[in-house]
């Protein structure tokens, strides 16, 4: 099936799951992301059955935890990646993954919409920049995330403009800290 050229508004669809338990919204997210999670897991060394199991688990987790998604700090793909990565550590490496202290909830959605939009745009630019990287460099980044490299082999220089997205996230964190006072 061909995808429409314009990206669906993934954060809005996750919002519909959170607010209305919307099954159609879930189905649209599933059709886009579940095959990618499955492929991600297989590239990470899972067999087909395990990979599909993971994809199912991750998508059900999205359904259950839709209220924890913060579009001012992560795109849908990013959030889903973190769930999939944690599932992989759990299933393939059989380890716990310590998570940082929870900063609580973000500001109310209305005050936060401009931030969220800007972050989604930065994420789209990042995705685009990745497709334009030289093959060897992109391959190295992929191997890092597929778990092919040990922590001693990983070098931090990605050649991608992560600074813009980092300052965007930093702003969202500052705002969150401010609200916590």
């Amino acid at each position: 099936t061909m995808e429409p050229s314009a990206e669906p508004d993934w954060p809005a669809l996750i919002g519909r799951i959170r607010d209305h338990r919307d099954r159609d919204a879930f189905a649209r997210l599933f059709c886009h992301f579940a095959p990618r999670i499955r492929g991600f897991m297989m590239k990470s060394g899972a067999d087909a059955t395990t990979a599909e199991e993971c994809a199912q688990d991750v998508m059900v987790t999205l359904w259950r935890k839709a209220h924890l998604f913060d579009p001012a700090r992560a795109s849908a793909a990013t959030w889903i990646f973190t769930i999939a990565r944690n599932r992989r550590i759990d299933m393939l490496r059989k380890q716990r993954r310590p998570e940082p202290e929870d900063l609580g909830w973000g500001p109310e959605p209305e005050t936060d919409q401009a931030d969220a939009l800007a972050l989604q745009q930065d994420s789209a630019r990042l995705k685009d920049a990745m497709t334009k990287l030289p093959e060897a460099q992109r391959h190295l980044i992929e191997r890092t995330y597929f778990g092919d490299l040990s922590h001693r082999e990983i070098a931090a220089e990605t050649g991608l403009p992560l600074g813009t997205i980092k300052s965007r996230i930093r702003l969202a964190l500052d705002r969150l800290r401010h609200h916590m006072k």
Partner: peptide, 22 residues
């Protein structure tokens, strides 16, 4: 979280057209 965004971009770039069991 910026590196997580890179992970999101890697995930997006994975191609797999199989039916994942909706």
């Amino acid at each position: 979280e910026a590196y997580d965004a890179l992970g999101g971009a890697v995930l997006e770039a994975v191609t797999d057209s199989s039916d994942a069991g909706l």
